[in-house]
Simulated scan of single mutants.
Amino acid sequence: MGKQMTEMLKGTLEGIVLALLTGNPAYGYEITTMLRAKGFTEIAEGTVYALLVRIEQKGLVDVEKRPSEKGPPRKVYSLNEQGKQELEEFWNTWGFLSERLEQLRQGGK
């Protein structure tokens, strides 16, 4: 993955993860697997776990500890109301930016 892609992902990864959690509670490794299935193959697990800590601290997700067959209980993340509002703002911002970028790509028309 190129440096430009890495930098762009830094600014959008939170919204991407919130979108993945919409109606689909998951634990860290599942989230990483979902990201990879969507083509985000170069995102390191450590990056995802650090992001999960941040969105938990920001109050965007609810966390439930569930027993694991192996090892300690898993933290399962689900989008809460504040997270849904944050995701809605992300999509609004994304729509605004993508429209403007497409205009620029088309020669500013």
Rank of each mutant, 00 (worst) to 15 (best):
A50Y: 11
V63Y: 13
V63C: 14
L21A: 03
L21C: 02
K58P: 12
T41I: 09
P67L: 12
T33V: 10
L51F: 02
L35F: 04
T47M: 10
R54H: 07
A44H: 14
L35K: 03
Y29Q: 13
F40S: 07
R36S: 12
E69F: 09
F40I: 04
A26S: 14
D62A: 14
T41Y: 08
Q57C: 09
V53C: 06
E45I: 10
E56N: 13
R54P: 03
G39Y: 13
A44D: 13
E56V: 07
Y27R: 04
L21I: 00
I31D: 00
E69G: 10
G59A: 12
V48I: 05
E30Y: 01
K65M: 11
Y29G: 01
S68K: 05
E64F: 08
T22I: 07
S68N: 07
L20C: 01
Q57L: 15
L21D: 01
L51I: 08
S68E: 06
L52H: 01
L52C: 11
E64P: 06
L20N: 02
K38R: 12
K58S: 13
L60A: 05
Y49S: 10
T33K: 08
E56W: 15
R66S: 10
P67Q: 10
S68A: 11
G59D: 15
V61D: 04
V53Q: 11
M34P: 00
L51W: 01
L21H: 00
P25I: 01
G28N: 00
R54A: 15
M34V: 03
A19K: 02
Q57S: 12
E56K: 15
T32H: 12
E69V: 03
A37T: 09
A26R: 10
T32I: 09
V61Y: 07
R36V: 11
T47Q: 15
E69R: 08
L60V: 09
Q57I: 10
Y29K: 12
K38P: 11
G59V: 12
V61M: 10
A50W: 06
I55C: 09
T22G: 03
R66D: 11
Q57Y: 08
F40Q: 08
L51T: 05
G23M: 06
G28V: 00
E64I: 14
